[in-house]
Design a protein around this nucleic acid. Structure first.
Length: 291
DNA sequence: CGGGTTTGACCTGCGC
DNA sequence: GCGCAGGTCAAACCCG
């Protein structure tokens, strides 16, 4: 326990998995460590603003080319992540909540236009183009992680409503879309199963909860994740090198990041965050804190 | 009956 | 411009 991992080892573990996934070379073989020309440190990236997009999901993208290319692409993306506050000319296309709402409104508007419905005025639907012009898009923090689980939808204490499911290209497994059921909370998550390793579930959170975890409000934090006892982080691939597993350092970046991901989760506060993190992702700690 | 899921249709962005 | 893929909507359906 308490092993401290540096940024590079974490990234290498990360990249190791990126090679293991579709388009990533196929074989789960280790790739040699390399210097990090673009990032000051991955933990630094996690530690920084919640506006940063922690793009762990990207390497799972089948569009990535194998080996070196994926590494370079990841590095370039990490670079963008870490520069997200700057006025860099690099403009990523960010899927973010405001844009989504706008899109939804446009969708609703168009549908109503098609149907010849004049409810637009009542719903206060306004043309979006002019409004959006010159408006800088906000960036929604995302966090993706892999778990080994028999069930797709891992219980995390929050209540989710499924609002869509899509077939994923090159994968027999569909991707499910969930939205937090709490009013005014716009957190979403995507859940998909890796087709390379069907035992692995990839969960991507988007946004931050603006409320307390319902399970905790009821005073039963131990109900968290009990529906996912079969879940286990793929520590061999990624999880075990997450820097925040160092329980010797409750102020580590992982703690900070979890705080941004679950801002109302006061359980993450030191000194008990390790045990309480276990409530959220129980087996993760079990399999990772053991030397 | 209220809340959640399913599923086909639709919209948008991107690459060619 | 066109086709594709990802993301979302919403009606229909299901369930406790």
């Amino acid at each position: 326990m308490g092993e401290v991992f540096d940024d590079e080892s974490f990234l290498d573990s990360f990249l190791h998995y990126s090679n293991y996934l579709p388009g990533g070379g196929g074989d789960p073989q280790y790739i040699e460590p390399a210097t990090l020309p673009y990032v000051e440190g991955f933990t630094e990236c996690l530690r920084s603003s919640a506006d940063h997009f922690v793009m762990l999901a990207k390497p799972f993208d089948s569009s990535l080319s194998p080996k070196k290319d994926s590494r370079e692409k990841l590095f370039s993306e990490v670079k963008v992540m870490t520069n997200s506050q700057s006025s860099s000319s690099e403009e990523l296309h960010w899927e973010e909540e405001n844009g989504g709402c706008e899109k939804s409104r446009k969708t609703g508007q168009k549908r109503q236009e098609r149907e010849g419905d004049d409810q637009c005025a009542q719903m206060d639907i306004k043309p979006s183009k002019a409004k959006n012009k010159g408006q800088k898009r906000e960036r929604v923090p995302r966090f993706a992680f892999m778990t080994e689980s028999e069930v797709d939808h891992l219980e995390d204490g929050y209540r989710w409503r499924k609002y869509g499911q899509k077939a994923v290209k090159n994968s027999p497994y569909p991707r499910s879309y969930y939205r937090c059921t709490t009013q005014k909370c716009s957190v979403k998550k995507r859940v998909e199963r890796s087709y390379q390793d069907p035992a692995v579930v990839i969960t991507t959170y988007e946004g931050q909860h603006t409320h307390h975890c319902p399970a905790n409000v009821r005073g039963s934090s131990h109900t968290l994740a009990h529906g996912s006892l079969a879940m286990r982080f793929r520590s061999d691939l990624l999880g075990y090198k997450l820097p925040f597993l160092s329980q010797n350092s409750p102020t580590s970046s992982g703690y900070d990041f979890l705080q941004t991901l679950f801002p109302s989760q006061q359980q993450f506060q030191a000194p008990n965050y390790g045990a309480l993190l276990q409530d959220v992702i129980p087996s993760f700690i079990d399999s990772s804190s053991q030397p």
